[in-house]
Design a protein around this nucleic acid. Sequence first.
DNA 1: GCAAAAGTGTTTCATCTACACCCATGG
DNA 2: CCATGGGTGTAGATGAAACACTTTTGC
Lengths: 249, 249
Amino acid sequence: MKKETADIPIPVKPQPPLVKDVHALVASYPSVPITVDCVIFGFDENELKVLLIRSDLEMFSGKWSLLGDFAGDQEELDDAAYRVMCDRTGMDDVYLEQVRTFSNPHRHPGGRVLTVAYCSLLNAEHHQLKILDNELHWHSVRSLQEMAFDHKEILDYCYKWLQKRMQEHPLGINLLPQKFSLRELQNLYEVILDVKLDRRNFRKKFFSMDLLTDTGEYEDDVPHRPGRLYTFNFKKYEKSKRNWIGIDF
Amino acid sequence: MKKETADIPIPVKPQPPLVKDVHALVASYPSVPITVDCVIFGFDENELKVLLIRSDLEMFSGKWSLLGDFAGDQEELDDAAYRVMCDRTGMDDVYLEQVRTFSNPHRHPGGRVLTVAYCSLLNAEHHQLKILDNELHWHSVRSLQEMAFDHKEILDYCYKWLQKRMQEHPLGINLLPQKFSLRELQNLYEVILDVKLDRRNFRKKFFSMDLLTDTGEYEDDVPHRPGRLYTFNFKKYEKSKRNWIGIDF
DNA sequence: GCAAAAGTGTTTCATCTACACCCATGG
DNA sequence: CCATGGGTGTAGATGAAACACTTTTGC
């Protein structure tokens, strides 16, 4: 089991001279247009939705598109994604996470364009769209068919990413009003993860995490017994972040 | 809890005309040099190692660098990463995964350069380095200090990614010889995850996953009782991939 | 009073954890 | 025979899953 090769001193070949002019070096690299695409998920009427606009390319006429734009010359991509979201929707105060970079050379009909996908989850009720250009609106994720570019592929990837992420982080909370009932919370998990969950076990699970604060208030305007309303204790969560080892595959 | 706004028909503003010339559109985007950086982890002498070269930039003289190069004009990034690895190390048949794109506008001293990090794990013994230019060799991950560019940050990110990934996928198997003892397997997990594990529980865990095949052979050349050698049943693993729901944060 | 969802406990089972002794081999 | 790690089992705790009835409200 011993191995020796890697650390035996090996005669080093003569090296080319060090690069002095780093700007010239960078200028010699091929360069590529970069876009960011925002996959903004929301939850509404017991469905997972995603914000889309009509593509403004003639060849994709009628097709739906993610919210994207090119990244500025000197712009951090996180900032670009945030800017795109603000510009397209008028929303701010929304958390975006980088998911993946898509680089198929034929993904854009106008030539090589890289795109970096960003993902977000938000409460459609609490974030009014202030701009509606290009028919911006919420679409049911389940019923989406064709989209412009490779945006369906990106969306599908982000949805899987979201399902995983959602089981490890309390992202889902962002989809609910500040005060929410356990039924709403459970609906949300059932819809996004596409599973049925046992109500009692679900409640036990969340109560045992001890991250919900009982407001003492109750639902209103429901045609049945109103449920208690809770808030999520983000501060407590930040302090107690998961930190365990579990080999599982 | 009802909300109505998003799906109420909203008068659509007059739209700008559709874009016809997509090439002109793309040509109007700012474009940016892209590189890929390969973070190639290996395991040797009971340590996690990473393949590095000396930076060939004068301003980083003496500093270590990840294996990177620019991505071709029309090149898929996965291919670019693979190419870089082959060119730099002479290895092939190695699995690389995209981890994240780093976009700080000041990360490269020669101007704006995006980089996409790719990560791999391999068995240093089974993949001989065939090229040693730029002092390519394995470095202990723990003892690394300064590196060129933002490569330390990238490496740290990839290491965390690896630790997580390793708990959900049998990546670690790639770091061992085809036939390995349970001690070797456990060492690997302990070192990479930076924890101590109970030997009996570790064995039980792996045996219960039922993915190890007993070869009937034993270690050789060890100064103590030799352990059984196992192989990993990749086929079985492929069929049984995890598919469960567990909310845990 | 009826429909609809809220709220609540227990049992079973699987999994994780902690823990200690004898065994086989090389030197 | 000694040093070194290989190999093994059990009991207790914890967490997940299955499962049914009573309560509260709006209508």
